[in-house]
Simulated assay, not measured.
Amino acid sequence: MDNLSYFLNDPLIVKLAKLFIWLFVIIVLIGYLRKVIKKRIDNTAVRYKAQKGIEIIGYLLIIFLILIAITVENIKDYTIIIGFFTAGITFTLQELILSIAGSFYIFFVRVYKPGDRIEINGIKGDVIDIDSIYTTLMEIGEWVSSDNYSGRIIKISNAFVFKGPIKNYSMDFPFVWDEIDILVAYGSDVELAKELIMKEAQDRLTDYTKNSVAKWKEMVEHYYIDNAKIDPNIAITLTDNWIVLNLRYITDYRYRRSTKNELFQSIQQGILDTHGKVVLASSTLQLLKIPEVEVRLKT
Rank of each mutant, 00 (worst) to 15 (best):
I57Y: 07
H222L: 10
N74H: 05
F162W: 14
F108Y: 11
E195V: 07
G151C: 08
E119W: 06
L280D: 05
G187I: 01
T251P: 02
M198L: 15
L288Q: 01
I153D: 02
I250L: 14
F84D: 06
Q268C: 09
L183H: 08
F91S: 06
T44I: 14
G88A: 13
E95R: 01
P114H: 03
G164R: 09
K39F: 10
T206C: 05
K277E: 12
I30R: 02
T86D: 03
E262K: 04
Q51I: 07
W177T: 09
H275F: 13
L297V: 08
D231G: 04
F64E: 13
D10E: 15
T71Q: 06
L8H: 13
F85T: 03
Y105G: 04
I100V: 14
L205H: 01
E200L: 05
I267V: 13
D172I: 07
R47S: 15
M198P: 02
N158H: 10
Y224C: 01
Y255S: 15
V190E: 11
S266A: 13
I197P: 00
K210A: 10
W143V: 07
I57L: 14
A17Q: 09
E191H: 10
A45V: 09
T135V: 11
Y186K: 02
Y105C: 09
I57W: 08
G276E: 15
F91E: 01
Q265M: 10
G187P: 04
T251K: 03
T79W: 06
E119F: 02
G58R: 00
I267Y: 02
K260H: 04
I81S: 05
L12I: 11
I123K: 01
V295S: 05
T284K: 15
I118Y: 01
F64M: 13
L192W: 03
G31F: 10
D203K: 09
I166V: 15
D240F: 05
I13K: 11
I234L: 11
L238I: 13
L29P: 00
L33M: 12
M1S: 12
K277L: 09
F173A: 07
K210D: 04
V72S: 08
L60M: 14
V279K: 00
M1L: 11
M171I: 14
I100S: 07
V176N: 09
Q202R: 13
L23H: 06
I13M: 14
V190M: 06
I63N: 04
L288A: 03
S258V: 10
E195G: 05
V14W: 10
V144I: 11
P174C: 04
I271Q: 12
S5A: 13
D116H: 00
Y208R: 00
I106W: 13
I68M: 03
D178P: 03
R257H: 06
M1F: 12
G125R: 03
L288T: 01
P114T: 02
T251N: 07
Q269H: 12
F108M: 11
N211E: 15
Y6G: 09
I100T: 11
A101Y: 12
F84G: 04
L297H: 07
Q286P: 01
L8R: 12
Y59P: 00
L272Y: 10
S5M: 10
I68S: 04
L288R: 02
I290E: 04
E221H: 02
M198G: 08
Q202T: 08
N261W: 06
A281C: 11
Y59W: 14
T86Y: 03
D2P: 00
